[in-house]
Design a binder for these strands. Structure first.
Length: 915
RNA sequence: GCCGGGGUGGCGGAAUGGUAGACGCGACGGACUCAAAAUCCGUUGUCCUUUAGGACGUGAGGGUUCGAGUCCCUCUCCCGGUACCA
């Protein structure tokens, strides 16, 4: 028997599977389908352990579904447009297309090493013309239906990326990719009208998504119920405001406009003109980050006034940057008594505070209140609505809000309104490496689509990258010059599509990446759609996962699924709601973090040069006590030749020079500073932190099966956690044991253990079946390890028959096949099976065989375990009770007291209540 | 602040309201070996105790229950998201 040697078998089977085409997925209406999708990677160059974690457990799930009888589609592709390619172009003078293609090529090999059941015939790559032609086509369809438009808004401009970004791509005032500051600018851009779908996006009917994702999206969409109210300036212009608290209208004491608001100029008086202009300018110069960091309220009086429609009072109008142009109407009525932000502003500028809601016990706050009152109570000083109760519900459910809205609607000065936090999606990017927006600027000044026949608008390859940061499309005359449908000269749009737009529909391109006359083949779509299970990271909650839902709903509404739907119906499928959502079930995996490691303890001799200690010798020692060197302690970090050493309470900076001698006893030869191990925290993996786990190295050391098994076993998949390099041993031993069990020539000595091993086998089947179904991968592997343990015990005294042993090992291999596909295939084949294990059916557990004959009956006295008695599993309640009461240990514990009650849980325990 | 998730041995983690710590890592003791690795056997929540056994134990406090890691209330800490959103 040969030893388990993954490297020799894994490659062999990967090639065999590919040659046999066992992972080709084709439409077969006679079989139930399962579309398993995992988020496609960006071709950054190297697959990291996170990719393995995101892809191999779902691969095991897809394989499991296949063995359960489903026709499974599990495709893979590349989200291949994006900025890193362009940065590489500028920094290293490599064309983005070349850089991307090389990375895709490299990642192909790495993806294959996972042993996944990807159907490569269905690979899609968003940067190829065959793909982005359809991204452009979708843009045009959206445009024709009024869902793509060019508009002006205050947007996020990233100076470092030299492009505009969608709200979703800005986190804490920084761009989500490089974490550089973003500015607010009034700009004209291309938008998708996602806000038209805001309400529908709030519904998750018919889909099973994690509550955290639904919460994040709901929060992001930010629906709030209230009223729009029209105030009037002294000049007669209308100032529209949105408020969730129209019941506090009588307490409005001033108004605030966003500095960018269109009425600012009209309202500003001559005396205030300079101050207002200064403030507007200052706001413009402030980055999003600075604005957020500024906790003090700022603002200036415009000198203008507006009339409150409910009581005719005259309110001073201010401008302040705490009012955002991007939300509501960019103007608010300020009710300092009942809104904490308005209150702060009023106090900062000495404005009137006028309470209009009394507390629940009728207590009325005075002008001198110390904080805004936002609770429930009763309206007062509110004209006709005095006495109306105020509760803590939103919108018309609150009687005070309801009454106020009715009043406004009768008077014609306001209306019930729902407002959303969600903004329309900016989809144009001022970058080169993306799909060109298929738009022409015509001679007559109008804007039009590139004729459909001219799609795709190809990205010119022959371009020059200038360090200006500007997209080369903006100065490429060959690209810019175009001809419109009427034969007139036109200029092309130089913006490209947001990569999130390309990835919003990739699940449809996988259906038929070969289609040249449609985005996808409706025959394929009718069978495979919708996606049954989607897996990926939760960080896409407000980006990709929101966009793709929107995209699918639009596709449904503009008829893109009509043909697909007709074919589905022809096959007898119920199509109701089938195109409402792209993915029926979503599961998010956690993140693999870097491991914790204790750094080398160093003893350093040398001399101080100001704050830096210049090393003569650096020696790795066992502990601080071993050395009396001047500087000694754990190496906390290292940058090039500068060490940070924890010397007692403080961290000392030590410089290792050319003349320094580094001694590491465990590493032979001449040592240098780069060989020193520094301390690592549990945190995200990154190259700069030096805690990256390279999956290629792991595969080389342990084999893909061990890496797969370990990623499934060592974590709760949803949670993730730190990678512990030593715990891989457990998964490696497990597979080595399976190898031994599966390759020995078994001979029986007796069959006394048959019942036990058969029970273990059937219990394992039930457990693994259930756990694979529910994404509980770690306990599925644990159940297989338990079966391994049982089999090893049986093997020792050869106490089971050859038949029972054969069933056990064959079942073990079948259960293991989705998790560790290579070793199971090799052993399966070596055991004489001619068909691949991956086309075999998943074993079925027989409950009668899985059932225990005897159980350990737990006997409790007052809820504490006092005895355990082995009894038949099917013991009756009466019998269990009498058995328990007959226990001598029970007798000891109930002695001197009276048995009050006996609770029997059949097949489990007996609790005797006595006092 | 608000929303979501969580706190269980030295570590990763298991536990339909019913034996807390499955499975594994690590550690310790032993076998094999000239030695090491690998492998095999045993121990491993804490405390008391020779054994038997007992007490304590799932972030803290309270409650419901015959019985709570699990359900309810209050609090606390950690992680993620979001935040002048009117």
């Amino acid at each position: 028997m040969e030893r388990y040697n993954p490297s020799s078998i894994e490659k062999k089977w990967q090639e065999q599977w590919e040659a046999d085409g066992i992972y080709r997925s084709s439409v077969d209406w006679d079989r139930p389908k399962h579309y398993a999708l995992t988020m496609l990677p960006y071709p950054s160059g190297d697959l990291h352990i996170g990719h393995w974690y995101a892809m191999t457990p779902p691969d095991a799930r897809a394989r499991y579904m296949r063995m359960k009888g489903f026709n499974v589609l599990y495709p893979m592709g590349f989200d291949a447009f994006g900025l890193p390619a362009e940065n590489a172009a500028v920094q290293r003078n490599i064309h983005p297309a070349v850089w991307t293609a090389a990375n895709v090529e490299r990642m192909h090999g790495q993806l294959r090493s996972m042993g996944c059941m990807f159907d490569w015939e269905r690979e899609a790559n968003s940067s190829q013309p065959a793909y982005y032609k359809w991204s452009q086509w979708f843009f045009q369809q959206f445009y024709n239906h009024g869902l793509a438009y060019r508009g002006e808004a205050v947007l996020n401009w990233s100076p470092s990326l030299q492009t505009v970004l969608a709200n979703e791509q800005v986190i804490d005032g920084l761009d989500e990719r490089n974490r550089q500051p973003v500015e607010q600018r009034l700009m004209e851009q291309w938008f998708f009208a996602i806000t038209k779908y805001a309400d529908e996006l709030l519904s998750y009917e018919g889909i099973d998504w994690p509550s955290s994702i639904m919460a994040v999206q709901k929060n992001w969409i930010g629906r709030s119920e209230g009223a729009s109210v029209t105030f009037t300036t002294e000049g007669g212009a209308a100032i529209e405001v949105f408020t969730t608290r129209p019941d506090t209208l009588w307490g409005a004491t001033f108004m605030v406009l966003a500095p960018e608001h269109g009425l600012v100029a009209d309202l500003t008086s001559a005396e205030q003109a300079v101050e207002v202009a200064d403030y507007v300018l200052a706001t413009k110069g402030r980055s999003e980050l600075e604005r957020m960091e500024n906790e003090q309220k700022t603002g200036v009086f415009t000198g203008g006034f507006a009339i409150n429609p409910v009581n005719g009072s005259k309110l001073p109008v201010w401008i302040a940057d705490y009012v955002l142009m991007g939300y509501g109407t960019g103007a608010i009525m300020a009710v300092p008594a009942h809104d904490s932000r308005d209150f702060e502003f009023a106090r900062a500028f000495g404005l009137t505070v006028a309470p209009v809601i009394a507390g629940p016990d009728g207590e009325v706050a005075g002008e001198d209140m110390e904080a805004a009152y936002v609770g429930s109570g009763t309206m007062f000083n509110s004209g006709p609505l005095d006495g109306t109760p105020v509760n803590d519900t939103k919108g018309r459910k609150n009687p005070s809000v309801d009454a106020a809205i009715s009043l406004l609607e009768e008077a014609g000065t306001g209306a019930e309104t729902v407002n959303f936090r969600l903004r329309d999606w900016v989809i144009s990017r001022q970058r080169y490496w993306g799909g060109p927006v298929p738009i022409l600027y015509k001679e007559d000044g109008t804007i039009g689509l590139v004729p459909e026949a001219d799609l795709p608008v190809l990205l010119p390859e022959d371009v020059e990258f200038l360090p200006s940061g500007r997209s080369p499309l903006t100065y490429n005359e060959e690209f810019l010059a175009a001809v419109d449908a009427d034969g007139h000269a036109a200029r092309r749009e130089t913006d490209t599509l947001d990569t999130f737009m390309c990835s919003s529909w990739y699940q449809y391109r996988y259906l038929s990446p070969w289609s040249s006359d449609a985005a996808f083949d409706p025959e394929e779509a009718a069978y495979w759609l919708p996606v049954d299970n989607y897996t990926g990271g939760s960080e896409h909650g407000t980006m990709h996962l929101l966009y793709t839902r929107f995209f699918t709903k639009v596709m449904r509404d503009i008829g893109i699924f009509d043909e697909t739907k007709a074919i589905m119906e022809a096959h007898g499928r119920n199509t109701e709601g089938v195109f409402d959502e792209p993915m029926l079930e979503l599961r998010n995996q956690g993140q693999i973090l870097g491991f914790e490691r204790v750094g080398d303890v160093l003893a350093v001799t040398g001399s101080w040069l100001d704050e830096i200690f210049a090393a003569d010798t650096v020696t790795v020692v066992g502990s601080r006590e071993e050395s009396d060197a001047e500087i000694t302690g754990e190496l906390m970090g290292r940058t090039e030749n500068v060490l940070r050493i924890q010397h007692g309470e403080r961290v000392v900076t030590v410089e290792v020079t050319d003349r320094s001698v580094v001694e590491i006893a465990t590493i032979p030869g001449v040592n240098d500073a780069s060989q020193l191990k520094h301390h690592l925290e549990v945190e995200r993996m990154s190259k700069t932190r030096g805690n990256v786990v390279n999956p290629d190295e792991l595969v080389e050391a342990y084999g893909a099966d061990t890496v797969r098994t370990h990623l499934m076993f060592a974590f709760d998949w949803v949670k993730g956690g730190p990678w512990d390099p030593s715990s891989v041993n457990g998964s490696q031993r497990f597979l080595a044991d399976v190898w031994k069990l599966g390759s020995i020539d078994y001979e029986a000595v007796s069959n006394s253990g048959d019942r036990d091993i058969t029970r273990a086998v059937h219990q394992a089947i039930a457990k693994v079946d259930h756990d694979m179904e529910t994404f509980s991968f770690n306990t599925a592997v644990a159940a297989l390890m338990t079966l391994r343990n049982t089999m090893q015990t049986a093997l020792k005294d050869r106490s089971v028959s050859v038949e029972a042993w054969t069933e056990a090992i064959d079942t073990m291999l079948l259960l293991l096949a989705p998790i560790a596909p290579h070793i199971s295939e090799e052993l399966w084949s070596a055991r004489g099976h001619s068909e691949s294990i991956h086309v075999a059916a998943f074993p079925v557990s027989d409950p009668a065989l899985a059932a225990d004959d005897v159980i350990s009956l737990i006997v409790q006295v007052n809820g504490r375990v006092r005895d355990k008695i082995t009894v038949a599993a099917d013991i009756s309640a009466e019998e269990a009770e009498s058995t328990a009461l007959a226990s001598s240990k029970v007798a000891e514990w109930v002695e001197g007291s009276t048995v009050r009650k006996v609770i029997v849980v059949p097949g489990r325990l007996v609790n005797i209540v006595a006092n």
